[in-house]
Computed example of a mutant assay.
Amino acid sequence: MFISVVVPVYGCRAALPELCRRLAVTFEDMGARYEIILVDDHCPQNSWDEIERLCAEDEHVVGVRLSRNFGQIRAITAGLDLCKGDWIVVMDCDLQDRPEAIPQLFEKAQEGYDVVFARRVERKDTGLTKLLSRAFYKVYEYFTDGAYDSSLCNFSASRRIVIDNYLRMREHNRGYTMFIKWLGFRQAAIEIEGDERFEGKSSYNFSKKMRMAFELITAQSNKPLRFAVNVGFAIALLSFAYLLYNVIRYFIDGSAPVGWTSTIASIYLMGGLTLSAIGVVGIYIGNIFTEVKDRPLYVVAEILNGKERP
């Protein structure tokens, strides 16, 4: 069995030697041929120097340097485009994902599954991060009519046919776990306890997380458009009912309210809803604009050990 490990590298240079060492020990114990593809997503710590050293010392390590920062998912895609394994493992570089857990993924796969995800238990994240993650998945489930587990992570083992079909999807607004689940192959998840981050902190701040949420939802569902239409229709119906109520009151006892307060409030309310609906439409138009340009998902500046792999 030939196993490829795809690792996007950003902001955790010090973990790379330990990561490669532990992966090598794990695969030697499994008796498997392997390659470790480290994709430098223009890491601010200049991780490429460390990747060059690792590639020179071990032919199993493949280095890929992107021309600039394209984001974690596109870095993963770059590694997947290059890998040749029968099975492909995707994991982070910060050692929160334990290399020693890879045999557990493959043990579960032997039961007939094409994809096995790691479900992190006792996640070593802040309470706010966990709360935002759960909230995002609830919103995502509503807009995409799917069921997703917020404890699942990118750490997974997938059969070659799964990755080949994932790579057929070349849209720019992309995810990994969600897209793999969408493919519908035989899937399973096992609980794996995560470790503390080896170094540094997550590069996903609140702004990046919100942007990613909008991209993923609008890339996979047009339900936000229908939602905006339904909200607009409901408010229009309520406004008409309130207007009819005031007309009836005027003719019965002449007590209908007179003034600008309700008028101005209604104008601002409807104006805000209109702008929101236009904004949702604008996001979809922006997605179309991004896709029709047909630019590459990433640009590779350099590859090490890529030609010598089996």
Results as ranks from 00 to 15, higher is better:
residue 204 Y to F: 15
residue 54 L to G: 03
residue 31 G to T: 03
residue 155 F to P: 05
residue 104 Q to P: 01
residue 219 A to W: 00
residue 152 L to I: 12
residue 32 A to R: 11
residue 255 S to L: 05
residue 204 Y to E: 09
residue 71 G to Y: 04
residue 218 T to G: 01
residue 87 W to C: 05
residue 208 K to Y: 10
residue 162 V to L: 05
residue 71 G to C: 02
residue 286 G to F: 12
residue 215 E to C: 08
residue 65 R to F: 05
residue 40 D to C: 04
residue 228 A to P: 02
residue 228 A to W: 02
residue 290 T to M: 15
residue 156 S to W: 03
residue 46 N to E: 15
residue 225 L to R: 07
residue 189 A to L: 02
residue 25 V to H: 07
residue 233 F to H: 09
residue 169 M to N: 13
residue 111 E to A: 14
residue 301 A to I: 00
residue 244 L to M: 11
residue 186 R to P: 06
residue 283 I to M: 02
residue 240 F to W: 12
residue 192 I to L: 13
residue 180 I to W: 01
residue 195 D to M: 11
residue 91 M to S: 02
residue 230 N to I: 10
residue 99 P to V: 01
residue 257 P to Q: 01
residue 250 Y to W: 11
residue 229 V to W: 07
residue 136 F to E: 03
residue 162 V to C: 08
residue 101 A to Q: 12
residue 12 C to N: 14
residue 282 G to D: 10
residue 103 P to F: 13
residue 91 M to Y: 02
residue 231 V to H: 08
residue 97 D to M: 09
residue 150 S to E: 15
residue 81 D to K: 13
residue 202 S to V: 08
residue 128 L to E: 15
residue 36 I to H: 01
residue 222 N to S: 12
residue 180 I to L: 10
residue 188 A to D: 12
residue 175 G to T: 07
residue 174 R to H: 06
residue 146 G to S: 10
residue 119 R to F: 08
residue 265 A to Q: 11
residue 148 Y to H: 14
residue 111 E to T: 02
residue 144 T to H: 06
residue 189 A to C: 07
residue 58 D to E: 13
residue 30 M to I: 06
residue 142 Y to H: 07
residue 290 T to E: 11
residue 212 M to W: 13
residue 81 D to C: 10
residue 19 L to D: 00
residue 77 T to E: 10
residue 97 D to G: 12
residue 274 T to L: 14
residue 116 V to F: 01
residue 79 G to A: 03
residue 24 A to N: 09
residue 109 A to M: 14
residue 260 W to A: 11
residue 85 G to D: 05
residue 279 G to F: 10
residue 281 V to L: 14
residue 87 W to G: 00
residue 256 A to C: 04
residue 95 L to P: 06
residue 206 F to P: 04
residue 96 Q to S: 14
residue 142 Y to V: 09
residue 261 T to F: 12
residue 176 Y to L: 14
residue 57 E to K: 15
residue 200 G to F: 07
residue 64 V to M: 08
residue 25 V to L: 14
residue 233 F to K: 15
residue 110 Q to A: 13
residue 220 Q to E: 06
residue 116 V to R: 01
residue 248 I to D: 02
residue 86 D to K: 12
residue 266 S to M: 11
residue 10 Y to D: 05
residue 5 V to G: 00
residue 191 E to F: 05
residue 278 I to C: 08
residue 69 N to Y: 13
residue 31 G to Q: 07
residue 139 V to S: 09
residue 251 F to W: 11
residue 295 R to A: 10
residue 9 V to S: 07
residue 75 A to F: 03
residue 65 R to V: 03
residue 82 L to N: 01
residue 240 F to L: 15
residue 76 I to W: 00
residue 297 L to R: 11
residue 135 A to Q: 08
residue 179 F to T: 13
residue 145 D to V: 00
residue 243 L to Y: 13
residue 1 M to V: 07
residue 38 L to Y: 04
residue 110 Q to K: 13
residue 302 E to M: 02
residue 175 G to E: 00
residue 94 D to C: 11
residue 180 I to V: 15
residue 52 E to S: 09
residue 213 A to K: 00
residue 226 R to K: 12
residue 36 I to K: 04
residue 208 K to P: 00
residue 11 G to H: 10
residue 92 D to P: 09
residue 86 D to E: 14
residue 206 F to S: 06
residue 309 R to A: 04
